[in-house]
Amino acid sequence: MAGLPFSQLDGAGHLRHFLTTEGLSRETLTDILDTADSFAAVGKRAIKKVPLLRGKTVVNLFFEPSTRTLTTFELAAKRLSADVMNINLKRSAAVKGESLLDTLHTLEAMHCDMFVIRHASSGAAHFIARNVAPHISVMNGGDGRHAHPSQALIDVYTIRQHKPDFSKLRVAIVGDIAHSRVARSQIRTLRALGVKEVRIVAPRTLLPPMPEALGAKVFLSLEEGLRDVDVVMMLRLQQERIQGPLLPSLHEYNACYGLTEKKLAVAKADAIVMHPGPLNRGVEIDSEVADGPRSVILQQVSHGIAIRMAVMSMILGRRDAAKEPG
């Protein structure tokens, strides 16, 4: 009955904003991964910078603190030669009662080209994309429990380096699915790329209502969920979950859902282990696994910049291309 959902794609099907992995085609996702390959090479040079976005201004608008994500977005923009401004609204105007739209319009007036948004409320990036001036693109750096699309791309990029044929893969996502924007984006991305089986493993208190609707197979037992998988993607458990009625204790969570070498034994022998960070060692993952031979966690971190460079340049390049044909 309500209007059509807002689209992150332009009329030609190219990215105009980057809000969610939901609805992105396999081709678009693969383009991003391929482009990221090229940018990964740039990071290994003496001068880790290309002039692609010279003259453009990227604003990191963070309404929720996150040093790690902010840093990689900032580095990505800088390596593309864009000017970068970091605005932490937790501390500035937002507290003085200025509305979100007022803040946006103030920044728009400064002729920015892209907002990277991180916000604690689901749908915040959509809201901002819907309301910004047409010359601004929005990149979602994580909104509430909804989506964290660049993190999901980092994860599949990492998987692709180890296991290029997605059609044969079994992937288990383990942990707090209900509250995880990363998990939602991961499931969509893995499905779109044709992964054979996506599993979610969690106690029922950490599953959303109707979890199968996300497009994954539900496992309540970690032992069963890990059987014969090629990839294990662990999720961070927020400590605050213990304070509510969702879990009795970190200790019990670790005993049932914490990843140990022993539990990992039922996975395929060459299975890789991932985690979007930051890690709660001894809660969702034991150090012997996190630092072990199957862990690719540090690789994930290093891929963050290339993925974000790829998305930024694809959005800003395409948009300008659409503006000035020929």
Partner: peptide
Amino acid sequence: HGGSVSGRLGIGGIP
């Protein structure tokens, strides 16, 4: 409403 859409959008669902 707590259902498939709330799960998909990541909005807290009222059962």
